[in-house]
């Protein structure tokens, strides 16, 4: 009797969630459309002043991506909690934290990655210069997994409560402040021709920390949610 190996289990969970995301690809398009529409509103609200738009472009795209990600968080654990497949994950011989890590990865690929792909287009719409655009993409590549991990902990904590969407937003947004500061700092430094690597490195350090802590915290929180 051989229990499933660690690698087979990780691949199974990752494959499952990506396949599910693909089956409901309409849901993937929603945050992307949301980000597109929100960004389009800014030139209307602020007026067609290229310099002004270029100055706010980095921050606008960052905050828009953050809010768009927030829309998709509710689907991270809730469906699994409702149909009993989370219990099956918990009862599997592999460490739950690792399997949840795979779920978070799949969620990041299906929600944040499409947003990162359109982010340069959104930023160009707001006249962000090309070199700053590259830094923006880099900042997003580090900041969005960090947001996914932070969000996953809060989703796990609120999983047992009903109507947790707004509560989740209220809890997550304060935690996002440092992420936004560092990511936007890197983009504006690049715009002014200053070195921009330090804020990205800070984000990277936080990401490394959360990569370890967040899945463990999620596992503990979901076990409590199931136990209640």
């Amino acid at each position: 009797m051989m229990p499933g190996s660690l690698r087979a289990a990780c691949v199974a969970v990752l494959r499952r969630d990506l396949l599910l995301a693909w089956r409901r690809r309409g849901d993937i398009a929603l945050p992307v459309l949301y980000a597109l529409i929100v960004t389009t509103l800014f030139p209307f609200a602020l007026g067609p002043n290229d310099d002004l738009l270029a100055r706010v472009a980095g921050g606008v795209v960052l905050v828009t991506v953050l809010l768009a990600m927030l829309l998709a968080f509710d689907a991270l654990f809730r469906p699994d909690l409702e149909d009993g497949s989370l219990e099956q994950l918990m009862l599997a011989p592999q460490p739950l934290a690792l399997l949840l890590g795979m779920k978070i990865l799949a969620h990041w690929v299906s929600t944040a990655l499409p947003l990162i792909v359109i982010a340069p287009i959104l930023a160009s719409m707001l006249h962000l210069p090309a070199h700053a655009n590259a830094v923006l993409v880099l900042a997003l590549l580090v900041a969005t997994p960090l947001l996914s991990l932070l969000g996953s902990v809060l989703v796990a904590l609120t999983a047992g409560t009903r109507r947790s969407g707004m509560l989740l937003a209220l809890m997550l947004l304060p935690l996002c402040v440092p992420v936004v500061i560092f990511a936007a700092g890197a983009v504006s430094a690049a715009q002014e021709g200053l070195p921009w690597i330090a804020p990205i490195a800070w984000l990277g350090a936080a990401l490394a920390l959360m990569l370890i802590l967040a899945p463990l915290a999620c596992a503990a929180a979901l076990r409590i949610a199931i136990d209640a």
């Binding site: 499933g4 087979a8 199974a12 499952r16 599910l20 149909d83 009993g84 497949s85 099956q88 009862l91």
Partner: peptide
């Protein structure tokens, strides 16, 4: 454990659901 909530993903086929179970629990 076979519970009331069967732990099946509604968007996947029975075969895909079984493959997940095998990945997690192993196969005879």
């Amino acid at each position: 454990f076979l519970a009331h909530h069967l732990g099946l993903k509604a968007d996947l086929s029975p075969l895909e659901n079984l493959r997940i179970a095998i990945g997690l629990y192993g196969c005879r």
